[in-house]
Structures are given as structure tokens and as C-alpha cells.
Amino acid sequence: MEKSLKKRILNKEDLVAYAFLLPAILFFGTFVFFPILKGLYNSFFNYTWREFTFIGLDNYKALIQDEIFLKSLKNTLLIVAVAVPFIIVFSLSVSLLIYRLRSGTRSFFRAVFYLPVVTGSVAVTVVWRWIYDPYSGVLNYILKTLGIIDDNIIWLGDSKFAIFCIIAVLLTTSVGQPIILYIASLGNIDKSYIEAAKVDGANSWQVFRNIKWPLLMPTTLYIVVISTINSFQIFSLIQLLTSGGPNYSTSTVMYLVYEKAFKLGQFGYAAAMGVVLAFFIGLFSILQFKFFGKEVSY
């Protein structure tokens, strides 16, 4: 009798829990899961404004031979390869320095680094467009004043510099959240571990390597995965600063999906690009979980 009563209570609690989860489940299914399946389905069709014809794997075969897509994929991988390690190293280094400061000073620097995150991307882009302006931009002015360059550089119009200019803007808007997370994680480390290590004669590097870094690994794993996904999906900076130019030197897969779908009406082809992008994001995430997850307790 008691077991039956306990079972009924548990079932009732499960129903209440699922009732609270239902709005989130419906939202996820409607706006995330269903679009994923729909995009995968559309990738097997020649789907345009006027046509919807099944073509199998032809879209994927075309991607392999599409020089613009391959160039955009290369740009995307370059952004990820440069941005993610920099975000981790810079955020962790700054967090270690900020954490040593007094509470008020620490809060000030946290606000400074987090400000670009909460600022609208359009406002940030306007500031950077002025910085990169070839005639009145502050970057050319500073470099000429220091004698580093003689003539103005068209930063966003030169394929040698444009992609790295985009990465620089991405970095300024991507380090705020990791710094906040790292500072919070440093505050959760039991100080008795550090004190015991120092009593045993450990120096600052040994304390960091053997105590702080392993305990920061769950936060690092989260930051690595989220930063990778955000870097793969970079779009608004590309659209607002360069529109993929010059000569697709700053085009990314995400921007090309937008261009093919909403400018040219090639929805099936764009869906195939989206599937490939999702594959790379999933692949990188799995590798990151395998590499960083060894030291993380789930």
C-alpha cells in the first residue's frame, strides 16, 4: 500500500514537472528541432522561388565544386582557429589579473569588458567602421603618427587585411562573457587548496597549473564550445562591415547561406550549406568534449 501510494505521488510529481517543461519543449520543438529537420529535408531539393524538385545529393555535390563556398568555409575555419584560442587565453589571463584586485575595482573592470556584449551589434559596428575608415579613421591616424605606415590603408577593402579586421571586431565582443565566468569560477575555488600548496612550497605557476586550471576546466569547456559555435555562426559583423567582400575574402558559410537563400532564392542550396555548417559545429563540439572533458566530472 505504501509503495503504491509513493508511486502515485512520484507519477504526480513527474506530471507537474513535465507541465512546467511543456512551454520550453514546445518552443524548442517549434523553433529549433522542426527547422533543423526541415532544413535537412530541403537540402535534397532544388528549392527556389518557382521550383521544388527532388535532386538527391546534387546540392552537396555542387558544394564540393563551389569555389565561393570552399573559400567561405576556409574563412570560417580561419576565424574559429584564431578567435577561440585567443578568447580562452586572453579571458583567462585578464580574469587572473582582475581577480586579485579589490572588490570595487574588480566590478569596474568586469563592467568595462562586458559592455561590448550588451551593446547592440549595429552600434559596435558603427564605431569600428569609423576606426577602420581609410581617410578619417583613428587606426590609420595612430599608425601614421607612430611612423608604422606611410599611406592610408583601406582596411576593409584590402583582402590581405579585411578578414583579420573582422576577427579583431569579433574578439572585442566575445571576451566579456568568458571573463565574467572565469572570475566567478576563480571565486568558487576553495582557498584552502591554494594555501596548502603554498605551505608545501608551490610557486604561482605550480598553483595555477595543478590547482586552478583543473578546477577551471568545466568553465573552460563551456567557453570553448560556446565560443566555437559563435565563431562558426558569425554573420552580423560580416553583413554590416564588408558584405563578404572584397571578392568573398571575408565571406563565411553563415553569410553565404543568407546570401543564397534570401538574396538569390536558392533555398535548397542554402539548406545544404547549413547542414554542412551544422556538421562542422557538431564535429568540433565532440572533439572539444573529448579533449577537455577528460578532466571534467559530470
Rank of each mutant, 00 (worst) to 15 (best):
K3C: 05
L21S: 11
L22N: 00
A24C: 07
F31V: 00
I36H: 01
Y41I: 11
Y41R: 12
Y41V: 03
T48R: 07
Y60V: 07
L63S: 10
D66C: 08
L70N: 12
N75S: 06
T76M: 03
I79N: 01
V82Y: 07
L92D: 00
L97D: 05
S103E: 13
R106L: 14
R106N: 05
A111P: 10
V117Y: 15
G120V: 08
V127M: 14
Y135N: 14
V138E: 04
Y141Q: 08
G147V: 09
I148M: 06
I148C: 00
I154D: 12
F164N: 06
F164Q: 03
C165G: 15
G176W: 04
L181Y: 05
D190W: 05
A196Q: 01
A196I: 02
K198C: 00
A202F: 08
V207H: 05
I211M: 12
Y222L: 14
Y222I: 13
I226P: 04
N230P: 03
S231E: 01
Q233S: 10
Q233G: 03
I234W: 01
I234N: 03
L240Y: 10
L240V: 11
S243Y: 13
G245F: 12
G245D: 11
G245T: 10
S249N: 06
T252Q: 08
V253D: 06
L256D: 07
L256S: 08
V257G: 08
G265I: 10
G265W: 01
Q266F: 13
Q266A: 14
G268W: 06
A271D: 12
A272M: 06
M273Q: 15
V275R: 01
V275T: 04
V276M: 11
L277K: 03
F279I: 08
F280T: 06
G282K: 10
S285Y: 08
Q288R: 09
F291K: 00
G293H: 07
K294W: 03
Y298A: 10
